[in-house]
Amino acid sequence: MSASFSSAIQAAKDAAGEQHYPQGCLYVVATPIGNLADITLRALHVLGLVDCIACEDTRHTQQMLRAYGIDKAGAALLAVHQHNETEAAQTVIARLREGQRVAYVSDAGTPGVSDPGARLVAQVRAQGLRAIPLPGASSVVTAISVAGLVAAGEGHGGFVFRGFLSSKATERANEVVAIAAQPDAVVLLEAPHRLEALAKALAPLGARKVTVGRELTKQFEEVATVDASEFSAWLAADANRLRGEFALVIHPAAAAASTADDRVLSLLLEQLPLKSAVKLAADITGEPRNALYERALLLKQGSTSED
């Protein structure tokens, strides 16, 4: 066990040990996406308490458990991954019917969110058995939390999780078309060897912002926001930017000004300087000032050409 986690095990016992942990239940446990300190006290306690840990990769999970000082024999670990999830679920269900407590962990983050676990939970619940969530780290919400969507005046903060886009160019291009029509932010995940292809596929989104979260919570964490059209150039500027794991947030497209907004802008531009007209129009309509400014420039250009 790492000495830095010795006190955490005792804290987990003190904080969570008196709570009720029913038998015959599946405990869906979120684990860190990189930084081992991002484990919850309740997760530490439950991982030590359960009779069996179903996991995406037994070797990876065993290494994590040892880092925390949790001693589980190899027989207490059951491989449940994307290739055997449906079949292995029956073994988990059998253990639950025997009254065992079973935890499920993926390699990183919250199970069932792009990682295996969703089918397992569905089958457990279909049998009338209970699945108990232990919340924690998730690359999806971690990336959203630092994208600054609402602060930038981009939508209401809602988002759609798409995960990994297709590895096939034509299908990926069609998926990007769907993203372009999506009014909310879109969260993607991507592996380093496919990132350049993804950047090229997103280029048609033009000035739409992309927040790139690389190696989130890890030593070389990097978060940057670039235009979709500049994403490829940003990657090419530093070879290190193609290393690690990635979560990306495609920001909402800037809202187009409505006909009513154009009418307000036109009337104000007849009486006021451009900046003053835009400021007042933003106060009246509630639309983002940057979008109104661009629209005002077009309106002025149009009126000039007509003259």
Score class of each variant (00 low, 15 high):
7 S>V: 12
47 L>S: 09
167 S>R: 14
74 G>F: 10
62 Q>V: 02
300 K>D: 11
96 L>P: 05
83 H>F: 15
48 G>I: 03
149 L>K: 12
211 T>G: 07
31 T>K: 07
87 E>S: 13
72 K>V: 01
91 T>S: 11
161 F>P: 03
157 G>R: 06
153 G>R: 09
83 H>E: 09
162 R>N: 09
90 Q>Y: 01
145 S>W: 10
127 Q>T: 05
265 L>R: 10
111 P>K: 03
19 Q>A: 12
21 Y>R: 03
208 R>W: 07
156 H>F: 07
39 I>Y: 02
102 V>T: 08
252 P>E: 00
163 G>K: 13
144 I>S: 07
278 V>M: 15
93 I>Y: 02
227 D>S: 15
58 T>L: 03
239 A>V: 13
49 L>I: 02
82 Q>Y: 05
269 L>E: 06
257 A>R: 01
231 F>D: 06
230 E>L: 14
156 H>V: 07
6 S>A: 15
158 G>S: 13
210 V>I: 15
37 A>L: 00
200 K>Y: 03
78 L>Q: 15
204 P>K: 15
30 A>L: 11
60 H>C: 14
123 Q>P: 02
85 E>H: 03
153 G>W: 00
42 R>L: 04
258 S>M: 00
4 S>L: 15
82 Q>A: 14
241 R>M: 07
220 F>Q: 10
54 A>I: 09
143 A>Y: 08
100 Q>H: 11
111 P>D: 04
85 E>K: 05
7 S>P: 02
193 H>L: 07
25 C>H: 08
237 A>W: 08
249 V>E: 05
192 P>S: 01
291 A>H: 11
63 Q>F: 06
294 E>Y: 09
254 A>W: 00
169 A>W: 03
292 L>S: 09
144 I>F: 10
144 I>T: 07
171 E>M: 08
139 S>D: 06
217 T>K: 04
26 L>Q: 03
264 V>M: 01
116 P>K: 00
185 A>P: 12
61 T>V: 13
170 T>I: 06
125 R>A: 14
33 I>V: 12
3 A>S: 14
21 Y>I: 00
13 K>Q: 12
213 G>N: 10
280 L>N: 03
224 A>C: 09
90 Q>N: 11
55 C>W: 12
142 T>W: 03
